[in-house]
Design a protein around this nucleic acid. Structure first.
Length: 752
RNA sequence: UGGGGUAUCGCCAAGCGGUAAGGCACUAGUUUUUGGUACUGGUAUCGGGGGUUCGAAUCCCUCUACCCCAUCCA
C-alpha cells in the first residue's frame, strides 16, 4: 500500500475504526455484456485491493439482470481478467440472477407497504410523465391502484400473462424530485427472453437500481464502490434499503463513487469497443491494439505492469484522462529487469565482411550489466551478416552514431566493422555494404583502440531465422477519438521476414524479449508456431535519437492559447437586502464583501443582528459571522446550532480585548460549535490565554532557529516564504498560544 | 434552465491554516558495447475575482469551465 491513502481507503478505515463494520466486504460487479477493459482493471484493483489491504473479502459478481444483452462468454472473459491480474475469488462467482427469488419477495414487500405499484402506461407516456430536468414530472393514474390489485398484477406479470412492456413495477417516491432518478423509478419490467443462466424461469427482470443495492445487501457488502455516473443513483440505493428497513437488521452497505479511467488515443466504452470488434477494424476482443484485458494480455503486457499502472494513477473523483505514456512506462519498467536481450533485424541490409573467413560462435550474455540475472547463448558469426537498414547512412546528419562510410561501428557482442563500399541497384537504393572487420576488436578482448559511438544489432545470414513481427501502434491518431474516422491507419504493420538470431527460436529462453535497441516483444500466444514464429511488439524502447531529430527539424513552439476567464453577472439584491447592505456599509463600517455576504443571507443577517445587541463590535462580529458562522449555517438551520449569538459575542469580546488571538478564536469557535460550551469556559479550561510577552517568546524563537540552521540560511538568502515556517513552529511549540502578531514581528526582526 | 459532481505543472496526483510531495512526460548532464537502464539537476503558487487572517491551495462570498442525470441499459 502506498503511503498516501486514497479517499476510499480513508473512508473504509474510518468505518472500521468507528466499528461500523467488523470486516470489510467489497465486490466487483460487472455486467457480462462485453469484454473487460483496463477501466475494469482499475475497478478490480480497487475492490480486490481494498479487501486485501484490510483483511476483508471481495466478491466477483455478475450483474446479470438484462437477459437480452448478456452472455456466458463474457463471464468467462471477466473471470479470466480477475485471475490474470492475480486476484482470487475463491472459484465462487456470484450472480445477481441467483437472487431473483429473493428480489421478487422484496418487491412484494414494497408493494405491501404501499411503496411500489404496477404502472400500465406505455413507454412513451412514462417518458413524458417523467418531466425534464427543469420541470417536475407527474404521477401516473395507475399509482392509485390498491395493494391487492398491485399484488395480483405483479404476480401475473411474473407468471407471464402479459406481453413485454404492458406493465412495469415502479417505486412510489416523488415525481417532482430534483433528482430525476427518484421520479418513481422502474423496479421491474416484463421480458419474455431467455436468460443465459436463469433460463426461461422468469418473464420479469429487476432493474439495476432495485437489484444492485439488494444484491449488495444479500452478500453482506459493506462498501459498494462504483463509478461517478452512479452518483445520482445513490439516492435510490439508499431509499430501497432504508424503506425495506434493511439497515436496522444488520449493517447495510453504502455506495461510494470514484472517477472512471480514461486513457488518451483509445476508447473505453463497451459500445465503441463492440463497434470496433463487430466492424472488423480489429481482429477480435483480444486484438493487441485494444485496451481490453485480453488485448493487453495478447500484446504481451504483464499483470504486474497493469497493477503498477493502476497504483500509479491514483483514485479520485476528478474526471481525468491519463496519458498512454504512463501505461507504456509501466510495462517498460517491469520488463526491463525481467527479460532477455536478443538481436533481431527488422529491416535487413546485407553486409559482407570481406576480410573474414570461416565462422565462429560468440558467447553472449542475455542480460546487460545492470540487470542482475544470469544466462547466455551462442551467437553465430560469419562473413555474411545483416544489419538494420537504419543503422547505415551514406550522408549522415550531425550527431549520427552508427555506421557511415567514415564511421566504424561495433556489432553488438562481436567485432567493430568499417564500411568499405556501398553497393546500389539501378535505382540508387543501397543493396549491400562491403565492410572490413577489425580482428583485434572482439568484444571482451578488444585491443584495437578504435573508438566507436555505438553498438548495433546484427544477425548471421546463414543461421538467422525468419520471423513475422507485428508492429503495433496506438489505434487512434486523435488524442480523444470521436469515431472510426479517427483511426490510425498505421496502427498495425506486419513485417513478414524479419531476421532473428537462432537461439530465440531454438532455445526459447523466454516468451518476452527485448529486441536490443528496438523494444519489447512477445511470442504471440495464438499464431506462433515453430515453423512460423510470430512476435508482437509490446512497446518500443525510449528513443531519444529520433526525438532529437524531430525537434531539430520541426522545432515548433506551439502557441499556447491562454484561456480567457469570463466574469458572469451577479444576481441583483432585493430591495430589503440592498437597504441592509447600505446600513452595514454606512452605519457599521463593514467592508463591502462582508456586508454583501451578510445582507444576502437571511440566516446570517438575523444572527448578526442578534449578536450585535449583546456586543457593540460591528466589524469583529461581522467577520466571524460572515466567515465561520456561515460555514456552520451552510449545512444546518439556525435552530440546530449548538452555540448562540451571545456566545459569539463573548468570543469576539475576548479577541477585542486581546485575551486571545484570532487564531485561538478559530480553535475556540470549532470547539464551541461541537460542544456548545461557552467560549470563556473553553479558554479557561484549556488555558488558551495568549502569550504576548516578548521575553517569553524570544527564547522559543532562538531554540527553533538553532534547530533549523538550514532554513535560517535559506531565509537570509532571500527565501522570505520561510517566515511562515518559523512563525508556525513557534505557534506549534506554544500550543497556538503565542500572539502571532508579536511572533511575526520578533521573527522578522531576528532574521534580518 | 433544476439536481448531483469536479477544478493543484503538458498528463496523473499529494496536500485538510504555517517551506506547493511524488510519478509520467519534457529537459540538461554523468555512467554505459542498447541513442535503453541507472544516477544527478531543472521545471507550478494552486480555474478567476474579492474577503477573513500575522499568514490561505486549504476558511467565507462570488463568478467561470467541464462531467453526470429526462433507457422498460448497467
Amino acid at each position: 500500500m502506498s503511503e498516501h491513502k486514497d479517499f476510499l481507503r480513508t473512508i473504509v478505515e474510518e468505518d472500521l475504526k468507528a466499528g461500523k463494520y467488523n470486516k470489510v466486504v467489497t465486490r466487483f460487479p460487472p455486467e457480462p455484456n462485453g469484454f473487460p477493459h483496463i477501466g475494469h482493471a482499475k475497478s478490480i484493483v480497487i475492490n480486490f485491493g481494498i479487501a486485501r489491504d484490510y483483511h476483508g473479502h471481495c466478491n466477483l459478481r455478475m450483474d446479470d439482470t438484462n437477459p437480452t444483452k448478456e452472455d456466458t462468454k463474457y463471464v468467462e472473459a471477466l473471470k479470466d481478467a480477475v485471475e490474470w491480474l492475480g486476484f482470487d475469488f475463491d472459484n465462487n462467482v456470484h450472480f445477481t440472477s441467483d437472487y431473483f427469488p429473493k428480489l421478487y419477495d422484496y418487491a412484494i414487500e414494497l408493494i405491501k407497504m404501499g411503496k411500489a405499484y404496477v404502472d400500465s402506461l406505455d413507454e412513451e407516456e412514462i417518458r413524458e410523465y417523467r418531466g425534464t430536468v427543469t420541470e417536475a414530472g407527474k404521477r401516473s393514474k395507475y399509482a392509485e391502484r390498491s395493494v391487492e390489485e398491485n399484488l395480483d398484477l405483479f404476480e401475473r406479470m411474473k407468471n407471464g400473462e402479459f406481453k413485454d412492456g404492458e406493465h412495469v413495477l415502479r417505486a412510489k417516491i416523488d415525481m417532482t424530485a430534483a433528482n430525476m432518478k427518484m421520479r418513481d423509478p422502474l423496479l421491474y419490467r416484463i421480458r419474455h427472453a431467455h436468460h443465459f443462466r436463469a433460463g426461461d424461469a422468469w418473464s420479469i427482470y429487476p432493474m439495476y437500481d432495485f437489484a444492485h443495492c439488494l444484491a449488495d445487501y444479500i452478500e453482506g457488502i459493506t462498501h459498494s464502490i462504483c463509478t461517478l455516473e452512479f452518483e445520482n443513483n445513490r439516492d435510490i440505493y439508499n431509499w430501497v434499503l432504508d424503506t425495506l428497513g434493511l439497515g436496522s437488521i444488520s449493517p447495510r452497505p453504502y455506495q461510494h463513487e470514484f472517477a472512471r479511467l480514461g486513457i488518451n488515443y483509445t476508447v473505453m466504452s463497451k459500445r465503441k469497443l463492440l463497434e470496433l470488434v463487430k466492424g472488423g477494424q480489429v481482429s477480435g476482443w483480444d486484438d493487441p491494439r485494444l485496451p481490453t484485458i485480453a488485448g493487453y494480455k495478447r500484446r504481451g503486457y504483464t499483470p504486474e505492469s497493469i497493477l503498477n499502472f493502476c497504483d500509479g494513477i491514483g483514485i479520485t473523483k476528478a474526471n481525468s484522462m491519463v496519458d498512454v505514456a504512463q501505461l507504456e512506462f509501466s510495462i517498460r519498467d517491469d520488463l526491463n529487469t525481467k527479460v532477455p536481450r536478443v538481436l533481431c533485424v527488422l529491416d535487413p541490409l546485407k553486409v559482407t565482411i570481406e576480410n573474414y573467413e570461416g565462422s565462429e560462435e560468440i558467447e553472449a550474455t542475455y542480460y546487460p550489466h545492470d540487470v542482475p540475472k544470469e544466462g547466455s547463448r551462442k551467437l553465430p558469426f560469419s562473413r555474411e551478416i545483416y544489419i538494420e537498414r537504419d543503422d547505415f547512412m551514406e550522408n549522415p546528419p550531425k550527431g549520427y552514431y552508427r555506421l557511415t562510410p567514415e564511421q566504424p561501428v561495433r556489432l553488438k557482442h562481436a567485432y567493430i566493422i568499417s564500411c568499405k563500399e556501398v553497393v546500389k541497384d539501378v535505382n540508387g537504393n543501397i543493396t549491400e555494404i562491403k565492410a572490413e572487420y577489425h580482428p583485434d576488436s572482439r568484444s571482451g578482448s578488444d585491443t584495437s583502440g578504435i573508438k566507436v559511438k555505438s553498438a548495433i544489432q546484427w544477425v548471421s545470414a546463414s543461421e538467422a531465422k525468419e520471423v513475422e513481427i507485428r508492429l503495433y501502434d496506438r489505434l487512434f491518431k486523435d488524442e480523444a477519438p470521436e469515431g472510426l474516422e479517427d483511426i490510425n491507419p498505421d496502427s498495425l504493420k506486419v513485417i513478414k521476414n524479419a531476421l532473428i538470431e537462432p537461439a530465440v527460436i531454438t532455445e526459447k529462453p523466454d516468451e518476452r524479449f527485448q529486441f536490443e535497441r528496438q523494444g519489447y516483444f512477445y511470442a504471440d500466444p495464438v499464431d506462433y508456431t515453430d515453423e512460423k514464429p510470430v512476435f508482437n511488439k509490446i512497446v518500443g524502447l525510449k528513443d531519444s535519437w529520433s526525438k532529437k531529430k524531430k525537434t531539430t527539424t520541426e522545432s515548433a513552439p506551439k502557441p499556447q492559447a491562454k484561456k480567457v476567464q469570463i466574469d458572469g453577472e451577479v444576481a441583483p439584491m432585493t430591495e430589503v437586502q440592498e437597504k441592509l447592505f447600505n446600513k452595514y456599509r454606512a452605519d457599521l463600517g463593514l467592508n463591502s464583501e462582508v456586508a454583501n455576504t451578510l445582507a444576502r443571507d437571511e440566516k446570517l443577517s438575523y444572527f448578526y443582528a442578534e449578536a450585535l445587541t449583546v456586543l457593540n463590535s460591528p466589524v469583529g462580529l461581522a467577520n466571524i459571522v460572515a466567515n465561520d458562522v456561515a460555514r456552520e449555517l451552510k449545512a444546518k438551520e439556525a435552530s440546530e446550532l449548538k452555540f448562540s449569538a451571545k456566545q459569539i459575542a463573548d468570543l469576539v469580546k475576548m479577541v477585542d480585548d486581546e485575551t486571545i488571538s484570532s487564531k485561538i478564536a478559530k480553535q475556540v469557535f470549532e470547539e464551541m460549535a461541537k460542544s456548545g460550551e461557552s467560549p470563556t469556559q473553553i479558554v479557561e479550561s484549556k488555558g488558551l490565554v495568549q502569550i504576548s510577552d516578548p521575553s517569553k517568546i524570544l527564547p522559543i524563537i532562538d531554540e527553533i532557529m538553532e534547530k533549523n540552521p538550514d532554513n535560517v540560511a535559506k531565509f537570509k538568502a532571500g527565501n522570505t516564504k520561510l517566515l511562515g515556517f518559523f512563525v508556525g513552529q513557534v505557534l506549534k511549540s506554544t500550543g497556538g498560544k503565542a500572539n502571532p502578531k508579536v511572533v511575526n514581528e520578533l521573527v522578522s526582526e531576528k532574521l534580518k
